[in-house]
């Protein structure tokens, strides 16, 4: 087994477009959950409306890609308002259930074969990204330090990591301001913040919109990388983003970034490892124990366990501060 090669592949994944998608989704969730304490379980829905917004504007309606981006963003704002108006006054777990339900509704609708003319059914929409790749300054494979990516991927990475840096800077500036202080206060105890004369509902709504829009950018990148398909916006993606956030540490500006890189490195490495360990004539792991197909499930098994253990033992993330944990038992 070529461990060095597997590490290389895993590193390529850790910095590749997949990591960017999950990182952006997690930055959005960090605003929701990490700073405001809002349980948005429908980040996949925000990604889907943005991704499908641009794809449908281009493929179905024949307008320009750039207009599509604006429409996609407008749709994420509308979705945030639609979800927020009924639920932000209710208990935290209600928001969780409404958002997850909304994300599933969106996935059902865009995947419906009766609406295939608009959204392409289960096949989704492809080939709407020409305007984006026309701007690609790279003409060949790019990389360094033994890692390399295709020119298309590298262009997505350039823009994608650019967005990550931009949003991280924005979160940094926002969260050190009095505005961020109000959000953090709401996370700790919204009644206390209310008693100090802050319009908690308005702040929660702003948080939901901002995090949702950042999630929308995750949807854009997802569409650029792998076309838009209902399966790319399943509920699982939201939960992966939560894992990434908790791994890197919620309410930390760079938490999602660290989390996404580590997450994708581990997931890809596990995948490559078990894949290699179960293939060939004389596999490392006997076929009776684990077939090649079963190997591809190992990452989900580890993912589930990791999410549980993180939440139980290190809710402040792997780089977290023990001081915070000492305060309350949560």
């Amino acid at each position: 087994m070529d461990i060095a090669n597997q590490l290389t592949l895993a590193l390529e994944q850790a910095f590749g477009p997949s990591a960017i998608i999950i990182c952006l989704a997690a930055i959005g969730l960090n605003v929701h959950f990490g700073y405001t304490g809002l349980l948005n379980f429908g980040q996949a829905g925000f990604m889907a409306v943005a991704g499908y917004g641009v794809a449908s504007i281009v493929s179905t309606w024949g307008f320009s890609f750039w207009l599509g981006l604006l429409v996609g963003l407008a749709l994420t704002v509308v979705l945030a308002l639609l979800l927020g108006i009924p639920t932000l006054r209710l208990r935290a777990d209600y928001l969780a259930i409404v958002t997850i339900a909304a994300a599933e509704i969106i996935r059902f609708v865009v995947g419906a074969s009766s609406l295939r003319g608009y959204f392409g059914g289960q096949d989704g929409l492809q080939q709407y990204t020409g305007s984006f790749f026309a701007l690609n300054p790279y003409s060949s494979q790019m990389g360094g330090l033994g890692l390399s990516w295709s020119k298309a991927d590298f262009w997505i990475m350039t823009v994608g990591w650019g967005l990550v840096v931009l949003f991280s800077l924005m979160i940094f500036l926002l969260m050190r301001s009095p505005w961020g202080r109000v959000l953090k206060g709401i996370r700790e105890d919204e009644d206390a913040v209310r008693s100090l004369g802050k319009n908690v509902y308005a702040y929660k709504m702003q948080s939901l919109v901002i995090g949702g829009v950042i999630g929308g950018f995750a949807g854009f990148v997802s569409g650029l990388y792998q076309s838009v398909q209902p399966t790319n916006f399943a509920t699982d993606i939201t939960f992966f983003a939560y894992t990434v956030l908790l791994l890197g540490g919620a309410a930390r500006v760079l938490g999602p970034l660290a989390g996404a890189v580590i997450f994708w490195f581990l997931i890809s490495f596990l995948d490559n490892f078990f894949s290699a360990a179960t293939s060939g004539d004389n596999p490392l792991i006997p076929t009776a124990l684990m077939s090649h197909q079963q190997a591809s499930l190992m990452r989900f098994v580890f993912l589930g366990v990791a999410l549980m253990l993180l939440m139980i033992y290190r809710p402040q993330g792997i780089f977290g501060d023990r001081r915070e944990l000492a305060i309350d038992g949560r």
Binding site: L303, V305, L309, R330
Partner: peptide, 18 residues
């Protein structure tokens, strides 16, 4: 906390389903 436990159930769900 209940929220933390809710996230634990999500991990458990992914784990069991896989």
């Amino acid at each position: 906390g209940l929220i933390a436990m809710m996230i634990v159930t999500i991990g458990l769900s992914i784990f069991l389903r896989s």
